[in-house]
Structure formats: C-alpha cells, structure tokens
C-alpha cells in the first residue's frame, strides 16, 4: 500500500520508516513547511507537497499518516475518511473529545480503518508489567504510580508551547499513562489534577494526577515538561502480595562520549529491542487493514484517553475532582 505522511517532523519521519519496515511504500510527504516536506520526501523516494489535502486526495495513496499538531487532527481524519483512505493518527487523537467523536463518525461513514498511535501499549516493558499484573504475582493491585517526561518539547514558537493547541504535558504526554491505566485496570471513576502550564519566564509544565478507578485502585500519575534535560519513565504497581517497579534510567545500555573541542558531551541511554514498539503498532494497523486481526488499541480507546485528559484539565480549571 502507498502511504502519505502529513506533517514531516520527527514523528512523521519515524512513521515513514515504520511503514517501510512493514513493507509499505511512502509515496507523498506533505508539510506546510516546504523544506521539511522536501527533505523527508527525498529520504523515502516520495514526492513532496505543501497542502495536506492534495496528499490525501492523491489517487495512489491508500494510507494517510497524521503527525501534525493536535488541533488539526479532526479535519485531516474527516477529509481522509471521506476520501476512503485508511488512517494512522498520532496521539493524542484530538484536542477535544467532541473532535474525537466526529472523527470516529467520519471513519465509520467512510468505511475506513482509523488507528490512533497509543504506542505505550506496544512497549515491551509495559507489556511485561501487564503480564505480571495479570499473572497475579502481586495479587489484587491496589495502587499504581506512573511518571513520564523530561524536557519541554518543541523549539520556541512551536505549537507545543501553546497550551490551547497542545494541552500541555497532561494531554500530549500523560495521555499515554492514562490510556495504559485504563487498558490494564479498567474504567476511571474520578480524577483530580494540578498542572503548572507556565509560559513565563520559563516555559514549563508539570502535571500531578490522583485518579480513582471503578475497580477501587488508586492511581498517581505525574507528567513533566519541567526538567532541564532528558526523558524518563517510571512505573510502580503495588498489590496485596508484592510490588513491581520499572525505571527507564536504570538502562541496559549507556554510552558517554568523551568531551572534545567540538562540543558538549552527548549521553545516549537506550533500551534496545529487536522490533521497536512503533513497528509493532504499525504491524497491528496493517494486519487490521488486511483483515487478519483487530488492533490492540481502538479509536474508542483513544477517545476515552482524551476524555480522561480533558477531565484532568477541567479539574485544573475547577480546582475540584471531576467524575468521569
């Protein structure tokens, strides 16, 4: 199948590579920033366009990948669905749950497969955690803590820095953990959130959530875009007979380059796996299109995740818990 990439930033490049790894061909790269489109198109032997709509409408395009700013997702999904194209949409699904619902309706009407990239469901460490919880080794789980984040993404002027567009760390980043908590522990009951969402003098966001699930489990979730550098993930799950912990900073591979006159030292931690979680989600998406299986994450799951993040942000504004 032929793939159009809408939004040629870092995630656009990553998904172009995953599509190729899954045996698909990138035929069009679209970005309103022309040099970005040209650069990615050249890399993948595709043609570059400015206008996402023309990429969607191109006759040879079967799959549309949406890696544009969150607020543009609904219109692009709706347009692609009307054109009968399958859709891979990067998370968060959309800026609001109302947009998600319209996008789902459009996909249903267009009879296309709409997949939202909640990639954490495909990370091996998270799958291992899920397997341990469901295997019962820690007994009935009663509490979970998830921590994710690091440096504020995007350069000055980027849409990430406009909270109306990105929703800050709560909608853009913590949504991974909100989705995963619901995936493993079921539906949420109520949520309370504090978030900094600062712009001056320094752009930073730090979000602290306490959530009660319908099962009775209490979840504590922290998302940070307030650190001077780096990115880390920590998980702790407690049950009646034990506790599971994961800490990404306790990495199996670390390399530290010696300081040279050329510039500062670069530190590269990593968790090498033979098949990346991004490729696993792509394979799931392709298998679904080919009618081989249903995907691990549905558009409805992605809608629920947006609803949870939306409730968290509503709690920030109301300064009271929000019942879901």
């Amino acid at each position: 199948m032929n793939v159009a990439i809408l939004g040629c930033g870092g995630m656009g490049r990553l998904h172009a590579q995953m599509a190729v790894n899954c045996g698909q061909k990138v035929s069009v790269c679209a970005d309103t920033v022309r040099p970005a489109a040209i650069r990615l198109a050249k890399e993948f032997g595709a043609r570059a366009v400015n206008d996402p709509e023309s990429a969607i409408m191109a006759k040879d395009v079967d799959i549309v990948v949406i890696t544009t700013p969150t607020t543009t997702h609904e219109v692009l999904v709706t347009t692609a669905a009307a054109a009968g194209k399958h859709i891979f949409c990067e998370k968060p699904f959309a800026r609001t749950s109302a947009q998600c619902k319209r996008a789902i309706a459009a996909a249903r009407k267009g009879g296309v497969n709409l997949f939202v990239g909640h990639v954490v469901r495909y990370f091996q460490e998270f799958e291992a955690l899920r397997a341990q919880v469901q295997g019962g080794i820690i007994g009935e789980p009663g509490w979970a803590k998830l921590y994710r984040g690091g440096i504020y993404p995007g350069a000055p002027g980027s849409w990430f820095r406009d909270y109306d567009q990105s929703g800050g760390v709560t909608l853009d980043c913590m949504i991974h953990d909100l989705d995963w908590l619901r995936y493993v522990f079921g539906e949420p009951e109520r949520i309370y959130c504090q978030a900094l969402m600062r712009t001056a003098p320094t752009q930073m966001d730090y979000s602290q959530v306490t959530m009660r699930m319908k099962s009775g489990l209490i979840a504590t979730v922290i998302g940070t875009w307030a650190h001077p550098s780096g990115f880390k993930v920590k998980v702790e799950i407690c049950g009646e007979s034990g506790m599971l912990q994961f800490d990404s900073t306790d990495a199996p591979f670390r390399a530290e380059a010696r300081q040279t006159a050329a510039g500062p030292t670069m530190i590269v931690p990593s968790n090498p796996v033979s098949v990346s979680p991004y490729q696993l989600e792509w394979q799931d998406f392709i298998d679904w299109i080919e009618g081989k299986s249903l995907p691990r994450v549905t558009a409805r799951d992605a809608l629920r995740a947006v609803e949870m993040a939306e409730a968290a942000l509503k709690s920030v504004a109301k300064r009271q818990p929000v019942t879901l």
Binding site: W143, C193, Q208, G216, I218, C238, G239
Partner: peptide
C-alpha cells in the same frame, strides 16, 4: 492552603483495618 486526597485500604484488606495508602494533592 488546600488539600485533596484519595485514600483507602488498598493492599492489606485481609490484615489491616485502617487505610494503608493516601494519594494527596
């Protein structure tokens, strides 16, 4: 100036009567 809290006996239902965990904001 303000406190929110979810608490409960989350992990020791068989052995303790009080709450064993509080998540406060």
């Amino acid at each position: 100036t303000s406190v929110y809290c979810e608490l409960g006996n989350q992990l020791h239902r068989k052995t303790l009567k009080t709450d064993d965990l509080g998540s406060l904001n």
